[in-house]
């Protein structure tokens, strides 16, 4: 009797395992290409002009306003990979119980070049964009700002 119970449990587990689908996945996303270190090494604060930068580095990802007539040029790229575990267990004909487990997440790397009003390079930095560019804040409406 006890042996039969174990056998039924084992058969039940095998049936559930067969009916469910689970998989391990490795996913990599690459968006655009990193700026070459050699090109960035050519930049000289206070000397390199906007035209020279564009000629060497090409088009930036974004252009931001900086101190009135100045500008900040942003290059960014992405190379992220992550492992994931996905298990899907059918609990009825219309619904699945599933969950995802992602083991990777990272800020986008990039480089920012700041130009003053004379369009000569003030400085440049390479790193995580979140650390290079201040988070942009939505302008407050007159009611919110109390004005």
């Amino acid at each position: 009797m006890r042996q039969g119970g174990h056998r039924r449990t084992a058969i039940g587990l095998v049936l559930v395992a067969t009916a469910s689908s689970g998989c391990l996945s490795y996913h990599r996303t690459r968006i655009d290409e990193p700026l070459p270190d050699a090109a960035l090494a050519e930049l000289v604060d206070g000397r390199t002009t906007l035209g020279q930068c564009l000629q060497v580095l090409g088009a930036p990802t974004a252009v931001l306003e900086y101190r009135g007539d100045g500008m900040a040029l942003v290059w960014s790229w992405q190379d992220e990979d992550q492992w994931g575990l996905e298990v899907s267990l059918p609990v009825s004909d219309q619904a699945n119980v599933n969950f995802n487990l992602d083991l990777g997440a990272a800020d986008r790397p990039g480089a920012v070049l700041w130009f003053g009003q004379d369009l000569v390079l003030e400085r440049w930095r390479r790193g995580r964009l979140g650390e290079l560019i201040p988070r942009r804040v939505r302008p407050a409406s007159p009611e919110e700002s109390g004005g």
Binding site: C23, S25, H27, R30, A59
Partner: peptide, 19 residues
């Protein structure tokens, strides 16, 4: 591969900024 899957996404752009 049934229980192990590999995926890759490669995206690139043409970009022009005119000032």
């Amino acid at each position: 591969l049934v229980v192990l899957n590999f995926a890759n996404v490669d995206g690139r752009s043409d970009r022009l900024w005119v000032f």
